[in-house]
């Protein structure tokens, strides 16, 4: 169980309170962690939420990886702690080297905010508890740089190690292999471009994101090699 969730706030992050609300709504206890503090406190899981950490200046996530909290998050992840990066959080995780590849500008060179359908490809990770491969979810995307790229070797490795967590059913941004989310090898670090916290109420059009956050709350630490 990972009931206590730390939600990281960089200057420029903007989805931190939405994420806190969604976690609390689903029975967790979320607290905001300041990027300048290196003490994570007694949290069971980390979410790096969406937004524009440090204005996305230079390159998305390129400055955020140097914030003091990132070393602690890397250590937390090495010990199997669940870490979920959403949107800008995914970008930060790739810049920090916790996930492979990179997110470049959408192929249409426009920001895109819309509902998107994604499909579970792998469930052996912190967002896949209770899910089945092939499950379809409607979850909004909201990004300019969501076009996932990696080397052919990395792509092959991701496929062989069953680390592609989601694929888009109708690729909106040009991502290689229609990839919407990936994990590290043990499955305790996941990055995804769609925003599960925005899909937690039928009033807002979908609650397909709730199961992912519930999964995060249910997943304990995953043993790492």
């Amino acid at each position: 169980m990972s009931q206590r969730v730390g939600v990281v706030r960089f200057p420029g992050t903007n989805c931190e309170f939405d994420t806190v609300d969604a976690v609390n709504e689903l029975g967790g206890q979320a607290k905001v962690l300041w990027h300048g503090d290196s003490d994570l406190g007694d949290v069971d899981a980390i979410v790096i939420p969406g937004g524009f950490a440090h204005g996305d200046y230079l390159r998305c996530g390129a400055i955020a990886r140097f914030s003091p909290i990132m070393d602690s998050i890397a250590a937390f992840a090495r010990n199997g702690g669940p870490v979920l990066g959403i949107c800008n959080g995914f970008q930060v995780l790739t810049e920090a080297g916790l996930l492979p590849g990179a997110l470049q500008k959408n192929i249409g060179l426009k920001f895109l905010c819309c509902m998107q359908q994604i499909q579970f490809v792998s469930t052996t990770n912190i967002v896949g508890v209770g899910a089945r491969v092939g499950d379809l979810l409607s979850i909004p995307i909201n990004h300019f740089e969501g076009n996932y790229v990696c080397s052919e070797d990395t792509l092959r490795q991701l496929e062989e190690e069953n680390r592609i967590v989601f694929r888009y059913t109708d690729n909106p941004n040009g991502s290689i292999g229609d990839i919407a989310g990936i994990s590290n090898e043990p499955g305790n670090v996941v990055g995804m471009m769609p925003h599960p916290e925005r899909a937690t109420s039928m009033l807002l059009g979908s609650n397909d994101g709730s199961s992912l956050i519930q999964s995060l709350l249910a997943a304990g630490p995953i043993p790492t090699a």
Binding site: C15, F111, E197, L203, L204
Partner: peptide, 30 residues
């Protein structure tokens, strides 16, 4: 679709409709 129209989780009816409808939440407690 180029605008983030969903942040803050209030957007019950967003752009492209007759009117926009936003959940009213307590600004202190949420």
């Amino acid at each position: 679709s180029q605008y983030d129209h969903q942040l803050f989780l209030n957007t019950v009816v967003g752009p492209g409709s007759d009117g926009t409808l936003l959940r009213l939440r307590d600004p202190k407690t949420g």
